[in-house]
Design a protein around this nucleic acid. Structure first.
Lengths: 329, 329
DNA sequence: CTGAAAGCGCTAACAG
DNA sequence: CTGTTAGCGCTTTCAG
């Protein structure tokens, strides 16, 4: 691996000069600049980022910690963030925490050790105490980590209320909520979905019903649980889920059991990724504004990096939209 | 950010001693070890990886360059690789090249500058000449990059032949191949799918038909093109696609047009991710051995890193499997 | 416009 | 068992 000094020798100049042309710093004669460029080409020189960042220069690296990359919602959010960061000349280090606290901690430490300029956290398990002590710029997607860490998310309350109303307007009255149900301790932003569901149904004098489905359990088991629910409870006529994949599962189960959608049963999902709109357009769902979320996450991070802004108990909330398919109405 | 020297002062020892306890190197008395640990805790010390790696120590970082993370096949392959690497105490830097040559080049340079211990490349556009000059350990998924870069992939020929035979055995005779069609210049491993398709049909005295669908074009346009094909060509009775998503699209179009699957039309996909098996179990498809691919990619990389093995025109090929759903037969 | 020298945070001989 | 010293590859005063 050629180093700066090699380039300097080859070009017949000092290391300082080479550094200057690389960084476009100070005044350099056209002649020496050319000599240096030629030498760099010939040696196939790649600057060593480690050495450079060791001086305190920015790494131009942003770490993302997310619970999963196989879930289309996270995949699209991550891809959008990555794309926008790239356009701002930042590279992304993606860490897949897999809903595993220890892994999350390891990756967080790795990011800190590698001096990333900022961190975007999207994990949804209970939060690590380590976040309290982070010195770098940091922002969270839809989850409380610490008072000093700003949160960006969609309006879970509004979205879920929209979903419940859509089911009710479609004529459903025996409605179930499938998905993560609030554990009991600290309230996270996504718990607003459950709260909105209860409230909206109450406003219409309807009883809210629940099938708790933790993110931990396997898809096959979820499938089985939904199947049991629909078999035992033939009068269910409305289901809202906390993500689109569970809605897909529900539709599959309904088909297996000969339940007609939307006549016998109305289904509405949550997330509304491009993936679902492309490959499962029939699904009615609540679409989160992925692109806006990404942009706001990044802006909030950049304000910390560039202006040393500091936040305290800050929560940015973006509105969701209803996408009407054929599984409701 | 506390540094090693701060810890040393606080513990009343030399920097070397602190370095020794951090790296578990040499002999240290229980007493000093404790003092150092206490000091580290109190200062919330995180070693600076950059400084450490600058000495030539390994970074324990592996870079992945993939064309997309929103495609379920890549998402699952990436997640599997990441998981296995993590278990071997390597962290992953995921780079999303988005089918963009310049982005791919930028990320490659970034990985080299950041001194990653190895690189796994899964992009499928035409290859950058930069790969010729890479000095680090490197391995490619299903694509030729340079003679010195080993390739790991599934048996595209066998998989596609399996798919074509499944359609023929299901009674199809007017069969189309939808997906990437070989451009004409250099032959990539995935081009074997098209070759196998032609060959297999010829063996059965059938004419191969094609609807070329580049990965570049948008899903909506693909949808439209498939719709036109099926409308104009009512006697098509078999379709094989080069990925499962295109198969999903085909099924959607068929439903729109009132074409019954598998009676009127048999469809078979390619990839067979867990995602498809979970949420679209009816699809008949060719499953790539994702977990084996991940393992072999990593082993091949580790042999270069640990044993300084060197490969020349090496191509590892893993077999595919048929997964029977209800869209064929 | 160009160079010499110091130092970023850490590790690795070499001493003791 | 512990400390001193030099140096990884680069940037950055400070001189000229």
């Amino acid at each position: 691996m050629a180093k700066l000094e090699d380039v300097a020798k080859k070009a017949g100049v000092s290391p300082t000069t080479v550094s200057r042309v690389i960084n476009n710093y100070g005044a350099i004669s056209e002649n020496t600049r050319n000599k240096v460029h030629t030498a760099m080409k010939e040696l196939n020189y790649q600057p060593n980022s480690l050495a450079r960042s060791l001086q305190g220069k920015k790494t131009q690296l942003i770490g993302l910690i997310f619970p999963s990359i196989t879930n289309p919602f996270y995949a699209e959010l991550i891809a959008t963030i990555e794309d926008q960061l790239f356009k701002s000349h930042y590279k992304t280090i993606l860490c897949n925490a897999s809903n595993d606290q220890n892994k999350e901690r390891d990756y967080l430490n790795m990011l800190v050790s590698n001096q990333v300029d900022g961190i975007i956290v999207g994990t949804h398990s209970k939060s690590l105490k380590e976040y309290q002590e982070i010195k770098q710029a940091i922002v969270s997607f839809d989850r409380y980590l610490a008072d000093s860490i700003p949160i960006v998310g969609s309006d879970n309350y509004q979205g879920a209320a929209l979903a419940a109303e859509e089911l009710i307007n479609s004529g459903a009255s025996n409605i179930y909520f499938l998905g993560n149900v609030h554990a009991g301790r600290d309230l996270q932003p996504t718990d607003q979905r459950e709260i909105a569901f209860r409230k909206t149904l109450a406003e219409h004098q309807l009883t809210p019903n629940f099938l708790p489905l933790s993110t931990e359990i396997s898809v096959n088991i979820k499938h089985m649980m939904i199947r049991e629910l629909l078999q035992k409870n033939q009068n269910i006529d409305g289901i809202m889920t906390t993500d689109d994949l569970t809605a897909l599962l529900t539709i599959n189960v309904a088909r297996e059991l000969g339940i007609t959608i939307p006549n016998d049963l109305k289904v509405i999902g949550f997330d509304g990724t491009k993936f679902i709109q492309d490959y499962y357009p029939e699904l009615t769902t609540i679409a989160q504004p992925i692109s806006d979320i990404a942009e706001l996450l990044i802006n909030t991070l950049f304000k910390q990096i560039d202006n040393h802004d500091h936040y305290e108990n800050k929560h940015f909330i973006l509105p969701n939209k209803l996408i009407k398919g054929n599984t409701s109405r």
